[in-house]
């Protein structure tokens, strides 16, 4: 007993500095936001009256609904695109690339992720813009007469930009799941008379599912809260939820309403994450 207490004490005293740091810099601000979301906005200060009014406003305002739906749709589209495009690459690196070259591939895949996000986003605007790389090249080559418009400063270009930004986030978890698959299982599948395609469908894919779900979560959560891309690509004209929060908080100085928006966004993200974690657990149970 004594030993266990000593170990717990050592562990707790070690974890204390980072935990207290996260408590001070993250938990207290989040709780403040939560508290603000139930207060009333006065002209210059915040009135300390408990109210549901902010939530009522957030839930009934059609603009909030539009922005929230846009965020969800963009995040869902980005997630589907990213994970769908990433799976074959993860499969390639895990199953085809020679073991000693896997690390190099992973390194190559992750590098773009760490390089100036803002500039990358801006470059997509340059690439996709009216006089951008794609359009100026295509018109210059005489392939098209008029610049393509479906990729211009709209939701499509936001989706492409975000899908590019979060690509490594999708590849890595899928790769890890694929790496864990015992290769003899696949041989067993083939040995038991399944075709290659059916072995993939009945053995590989189910075993890779936890990685796919992790990838879905890890892409979906940050994209739904992305601020930079709508700001740079859409020039502020097609805001997502993050931009709306910022506008309420700072430009309009309505912190209670902004807080309510932030809390609602977190709740939506949490609910969706919970659903996926639940699905993941189901898959894990099947694996055992």
């Amino acid at each position: 007993m004594a030993k266990f207490d000593a170990e717990a004490k050592a562990g707790l005293s070690l974890i204390a500095p980072p935990f207290l740091y996260a408590l001070g810099i993250l938990a207290i601000p989040l709780l403040t936001i939560l508290a603000y979301s139930f207060l009333t906005d006065g002209y210059l200060e915040i009135i300390r009256d408990f109210t549901w009014a902010n939530y009522a406003e957030v839930l009934t305002d059609p603009i909030v609904l539009v922005v929230m739906m846009r965020s969800l749709i963009v995040a869902a589209a980005v997630t589907a695109l990213t994970v769908g495009l990433a799976f074959p690459v993860a499969y390639y690196v895990s199953f085809v690339v020679r073991p000693e070259r896997k690390a190099m591939w992973l390194f190559l895949i992750t590098i773009p992720f760490w390089t100036s996000y803002l500039i990358r986003v801006f470059l997509w605007k340059v690439i996709l813009g009216y006089n951008g790389v794609v359009n100026s090249s295509l018109t210059g080559l005489g392939i098209i007469d008029e610049p393509l418009t479906f990729i211009l400063y709209n939701v499509n270009s936001i989706v492409i930009t975000l899908a590019h930004a979060y690509a490594p986030f999708a590849i890595l978890p899928i790769f890890v799941a694929l790496e864990k698959i015992d290769r003899s299982l696949l041989e067993a599948g083939r040995d038991l008379g399944e075709s290659r395609a059916m072995t993939f469908w009945r053995v590989t894919l189910p075993l890779a599912m936890p990685g796919v779900l992790a990838a879905v979560l890890i892409v979906f959560i940050p994209t739904i809260g992305d601020y930079v891309t709508p700001e740079v690509i859409g020039g502020g004209k097609i805001p997502m939820i993050a931009n709306m929060i910022q506008v309420q908080m700072l430009a309009l100085d309505n912190r209670p309403l902004g807080s309510a928006l932030a809390v609602m966004a977190m709740v939506v993200v949490a609910v969706i994450s919970a659903v996926f974690l639940f699905l993941n657990r189901r898959f894990l149970k099947v694996r055992q």
Partner: peptide, 24 residues
């Protein structure tokens, strides 16, 4: 629980971290 909380900023949208810290 404590570790999950410390790791939370990895998945939390940065705008929320920034806004809540700014407000405080």
């Amino acid at each position: 629980g404590m570790m999950a909380f410390i790791m939370l900023p990895m998945v939390l949208p940065e705008i929320i971290v920034a806004m809540s810290l700014l407000v405080v």
